[in-house]
Amino acid sequence: MYSEKVMDHFNNPRNVGEIENASGVGTVGNAKCGDIMRIYLDIDDNQVIRDAKFKTFGCGAAVATSSMATELVVGKTVREALQVTNKAVMEALDGLPPVKVHCSLLAEEAIHAALWDYAEKNKIVIEGLEKPVSDISEHEEEEAEDY
């Protein structure tokens, strides 16, 4: 059901991990629907994204879209990174099955959330960036106890 590129990014995900003292961190999605993405960005003084890392809880497509999204934003300025839309991520992966399109939306949203965090920390305004809508903290559930 997945393209070769999706399978490649699922099997060999690029940029898995964390960035300590990241310039911006964004976490989107919720456990209820089964997808959570967290993206870390390291941004230099010229507003260029030097590095990006991700962690994802979700299906094959969720992992692949996070991996591709991080790959697409590295080396771009924050303004350019805004152009990395869900469509761009999907195209770069040679498409996604219709039921998995929401994963690419989540990847776009995760980038935006990380950029928003960066903008807030540095008290700057990134033109065209709106406050991300979905956030994990709104949906956080009680942890199960019987483990």
């Binding site: 399978m7 699922f10 099997n11 209820k32 629907c33 089964g34 997808d35 809880f57 979700g58 299906c59 094959g60 969720a62 992992v63 039921v99």
Partner: peptide, 29 residues
């Protein structure tokens, strides 16, 4: 801490047929 579909894909790659009750495999959210 993990989701079922990824597990099924990797098990399949190891030659193991299994099933999961995750949203991704149930066709709903």
């Amino acid at each position: 801490f993990i989701e079922g579909e990824g597990m099924l894909i990797l098990l399949d790659q190891a030659g193991i047929c299994a099933s999961s009750g995750s949203a991704c495999t149930s066709g709903s959210l």
